[in-house]
């Protein structure tokens, strides 16, 4: 896959990117779109048109529409009326795109953050998922699918609390 050559963003683009990136995730409002790693690019054309590229976590993630609307709104509030938010699929989003700060916030919110992938391959199954409530590594899988497509449901064997785990993708 050929990707478009990287270009240094202008000061205006950097400013607008920071605004768009600070939009909270509609499902997990503790983390921002920038921390989630779904904001791919923001460009301002010569005519002042703002073109934003957003990538979904899962192909069918319904939150993408709310994200687009929220980005348009925040840019409009800052005087940019001509905004288009496009969804792009390539390169595919991965849980490795979540920033360190994003992971910390997820854990603080009670969601076990995704484990990092091996250099080239799946997540090693031996890596345990730590309970976000008590910190125990003695946890078990209840279901691979939870309240949203991106999460699995687990239970802590030590403190008995069930918790969500942002599963690796």
């Amino acid at each position: 896959m050929v990707t478009t050559a990287p270009r240094t963003p202008t000061a205006l683009e950097a400013e607008l990117s920071a605004l768009a990136g600070a939009v909270p995730d509609p499902e997990l409002p503790v983390i921002t779109l920038a921390e989630l790693g779904v904001l791919r690019s923001l460009r301002v054309s010569g005519t002042g048109h703002v073109d934003v590229e957003l990538t979904p976590t899962y192909t069918g993630c319904p939150a993408i529409e709310a994200m687009s609307a929220d980005i348009e709104q925040v840019l409009r509030e800052h005087g940019r009326d001509d905004v288009s938010v496009r969804t792009v699929l390539s390169p595919a989003w991965s849980t490795d795109d979540i920033s360190a700060e994003g992971r910390r916030k997820l854990a603080e919110f009670g969601i076990a953050p995704p484990r990092p992938h091996a250099a080239d391959g799946p997540v090693p199954l031996s890596l345990t998922v730590r309970c976000p409530n008590c910190g125990s590594t003695d946890t078990e899988l209840l279901s691979r699918f939870s309240s949203t497509a991106c999460k699995a449901l687990r239970r802590c064997v030590s403190c008995r609390e069930p918790f969500d785990h942002f599963k690796e993708l």
Binding site: V2, T3, T4, E53, E65, R86, T87, V88, L89, S90
Partner: peptide
């Protein structure tokens, strides 16, 4: 469904 324009790749990223 609300139609969301989804492009398979960035413009210029594929044939």
């Amino acid at each position: 469904m609300t139609p969301t324009p989804v492009s398979p790749a960035s413009p210029g990223a594929g044939p």
